[in-house]
């Protein structure tokens, strides 16, 4: 099972940092996500994309997780040489994660 099967995600950017929200389609999957989607798992999955620290915030009130990843845009929105300078497409990189 991929993360994509049970959750949706949106990327935001601030300088060289990206935010990745993870929101389960079913509230009943929130506990599973909290258990499986650890900082270590996400950091490992995004190896080669995120060079810096990964932080996780549990946003219990809306049953969501927020991952904040530093050094994630190869120098940042304005100066990066990459095709997707904002990292807008990276939500779907996270959703590729295998949960099993």
């Amino acid at each position: 099972m991929k993360l994509y099967d049970i959750a949706h995600c949106r990327t935001g950017d601030k300088g060289n940092t990206i935010t990745l929200s993870v929101i389960p389609y079913e509230a009943s999957d929130y506990e599973l996500l909290k258990e499986r989607l650890t900082v270590e798992v996400v950091k490992h999955h995004l190896k080669g994309i995120v060079e810096g620290e990964v932080k996780r915030y549990d946003v219990q009130n809306i049953q969501a997780l927020q991952f904040v990843c530093s050094q994630a845009l190869a120098t940042g929105v304005t100066t990066s040489l990459t095709l997707d300078t904002h990292g807008k497409s990276l939500s779907f990189a996270l959703l590729e994660l295998e949960l099993d």
Partner: peptide, 11 residues
């Protein structure tokens, strides 16, 4: 929910 967390580096 997606928009509430958009670009939020500390909720």
């Amino acid at each position: 929910k997606e928009q509430l967390l958009y670009e939020v580096i500390n909720p």
